[in-house]
Amino acid sequence: MKEKLTDLFEYTYHFNNEMIKIISENISKIDEKTISLINHTLNAQQVWNSRILHEKSFEVWQINPFENLQDINNQNFQKSIQIVKNSDLDQRMSYHNSKGAEFENTIFEMLFQAINHSTYHRGQINSQLKLNGIEPVLTDYIFYKR
């Protein structure tokens, strides 16, 4: 299971970098919604990591300096891999969501949420890129594995 999660975080890291790259290369055509979505995608992974590690988290919709996005993606990746390697994935943890409500899930469920959430928002970013006349990035997992 840990090997599969590591693979999925490598996939997530790779395509988050590809999204940052295409946005950077086309910054003059990029709208505010795209900037908001790429930030939210990275912020959410940071938030899930911080819940597991009991660290201070970002706000889910905060806008980070664009030049920091690759570093944030790298830090997210490193922390997610650290969690996978050092945690009992079946351990249940309590945490509070961004509205303060308390929930409990396994570490696996929390990590998978971070991966799935990133995939969802990269699809939204691709839609925004297309609307702005930019060729979307093929981000399907199967393309990554070929």
Score class of each variant (00 low, 15 high):
Leu5His: 04
Gln78Ser: 10
Thr119Gly: 00
Trp48Phe: 13
Asp88Gln: 10
Asn132Leu: 05
Arg122Met: 02
Leu69Arg: 09
Gln62Glu: 15
Asn26Trp: 11
Trp48Glu: 04
Asn126Arg: 05
Asp7Trp: 03
Glu18Lys: 15
Ala114Ser: 11
Asp88Ala: 08
Gln62Arg: 11
Met93Gln: 15
His96Ala: 14
Asn132Glu: 08
Lys145Leu: 13
Asn74Leu: 14
Gln124His: 12
Glu10Val: 08
Lys79Thr: 07
Phe66Tyr: 14
Lys130Thr: 06
Ile125His: 01
Phe15Leu: 07
Ile35Phe: 04
Arg92Lys: 15
Leu129Lys: 01
Ile72Trp: 10
Thr106Gln: 04
Gln78Val: 12
Gln62Pro: 07
Tyr141Arg: 12
Leu37Tyr: 06
Gln70Thr: 12
Met93Lys: 15
Phe15Asn: 07
Leu69Cys: 09
Gln124Ser: 01
Ala114Lys: 01
Gln75Glu: 14
Gln46Pro: 00
Phe58Val: 04
Glu67Asn: 15
Met19Pro: 00
Val84Ala: 03
Glu10Gln: 14
Leu53Gly: 02
Thr12His: 12
Lys130Gln: 13
Asn105Gln: 07
Tyr13Glu: 09
Gln113Cys: 07
Trp61Ala: 12
Asn64Gly: 09
Ile83Tyr: 02
Gln46Arg: 14
Asn132Asp: 11
Gly100Tyr: 09
Ser24Ile: 13
Lys4Met: 06
Ile63Thr: 15
Met1Thr: 09
Gln78Met: 13
Thr12Asn: 15
Asp31Leu: 03
Ser127Met: 10
Asp90Cys: 02
Leu37Arg: 04
Val60Tyr: 08
Ile81Lys: 07
Ser94Ile: 06
Thr119Glu: 01
Arg51Val: 06
Phe58Pro: 02
Lys2Tyr: 00
Leu89Phe: 03
Glu102Leu: 08
Ser127Lys: 06
His117Trp: 10
Leu53Arg: 05
His117Pro: 08
His121Gln: 09
Asn132Ser: 12
Asn73Gly: 10
Gln124Thr: 08
Gln91Tyr: 05
Asn39Gly: 04
Gly133Val: 02
Lys85Gly: 08
His121Val: 03
Lys130Tyr: 10
Tyr141Glu: 02
Glu67Lys: 12
Lys145Ala: 10
His96Leu: 13
Trp61Cys: 15
Thr106Ile: 06
Asp71Glu: 13
Tyr13Met: 08
Glu10Ile: 06
His121Phe: 06
His96Lys: 15
Lys145Val: 07
Ser36Leu: 15
Ile107Lys: 04
Ile72Arg: 06
Leu89Thr: 01
Arg146Val: 13
Asn132Pro: 03
Ser24Glu: 15
Gln91Gly: 00
Thr12Gly: 00
Lys79Trp: 04
Gln46Met: 13
Glu104Tyr: 08
Asn86Gln: 07
Glu25Met: 09
Ser24Pro: 00
Phe108Pro: 01
Ser57Glu: 11
Ile107Gln: 01
Phe58Gln: 08
Ile83Asn: 03
Pro136Phe: 02
Ser87Glu: 01
Gln91Cys: 03
Asn39Gln: 09
